[in-house]
Design a protein around this nucleic acid. Sequence first.
RNA 1: CGGCGGACCUAUCC
Length: 385
Amino acid sequence: SAVYEILIGGLVKAGRVEEAFKLFGELKWKGDVPGVSTYCLLIDSLRKASEIDTACKLFQEMEKSGCSLDVVAYNLGIDLLGKAGKIVEACKLFEEMEKKGHKPGIISYSVLIDGLAKAGRIEEAYVVFNKMKDSGCVMDVVTYTILIDLLGKSGKVYEALELFYEMTKRGDTPDVVTYSSLIDGLAKSDRIDEAYELFLDMTQKDCTPNSVTLNTLIHGLFKAGRTEAASKHFEEMGRWGCVPNTIVYNTYIDGLGKSGNVKDACFLFGKMEKNGCVPNVETYNILISGLGSVGEVVEAWNLFEEMEKKGLSPDVITFTSLIHGLGRAGEEGAAYKILQVMEEKGCIPNIVTYNALINALGKAGKVKEAYKILDEMRARGFSPD
RNA sequence: CGGCGGACCUAUCC
């Protein structure tokens, strides 16, 4: 059994996850109970592959298997539950950990704070934060970054900046993730100049920007209307040893479209595949939305068909973009039909979809139909605004 | 001894 576990560990680290799971199955087949660390290793490999649900199931299996969880296992579980949108369960697991006599460590607090923040439960995140400080835990770079990100995303960049200075004063060195988070927070609060200064600051401190940093910056520059600066940074990514990936292309295509260069956006769309970047649902959504916003509904529809042909599943954003574009083009009848098309495909409209359709009908003077949709959305439990 | 935590892209109206 110990041999199996060592082999499984080796396979996971070598990226041969399938083989690892095969061995794991054999191990259990023989009636052995895998150890906590083996479970955790496998659960974590699922988490890294974004297979959150499967990871949760394996976690439950571990709980039932009777092996007693240690702090690392609890940390993993709290993180998984948070990422699966089950933040209440995550909090319960945290309490269970304490009840069973395991003292939460810095990682325990960090994952819970991050989970709460991403679930929008900012107040509770602060409560856990204060508890962490009272417990005497020493914050590290990751904890600081989680807090800086949280503050930036909840409109408190000033406090994020204060934390940033506090950590440097304490001798903690911000890394590329810390910088990227703060640059994003500043840019999204329309403080692009400070964001840019921070970008320069990190390069002077030999903290090399990566593609996330550059994407964040490009996004911020577009948002501030600095199209040329954005393009410059896109073209000069190689300076930092980076090549644009699909997300960067998406940001750039979107920025071009929104700044009135839909033609260039389409040109880049053609180029991205040649550069080895596979367009995803977001790419198509960006283009469909961009084309619809300038009245090119036929082109938008063609792309919709193209994405389906490629096996990409249109989502609620795709359909809402189509509805908006058609409404804008005075084709409210077609916009209405999209609602049916999406339902047939099993895509549930949301409040944004209904707003787009009601606007389309209203603009066309079809007040009765608009009210009908309003009733439908109420019947579905949406409250109009 | 080993296994766990952080940042980036898309839709309506405002």
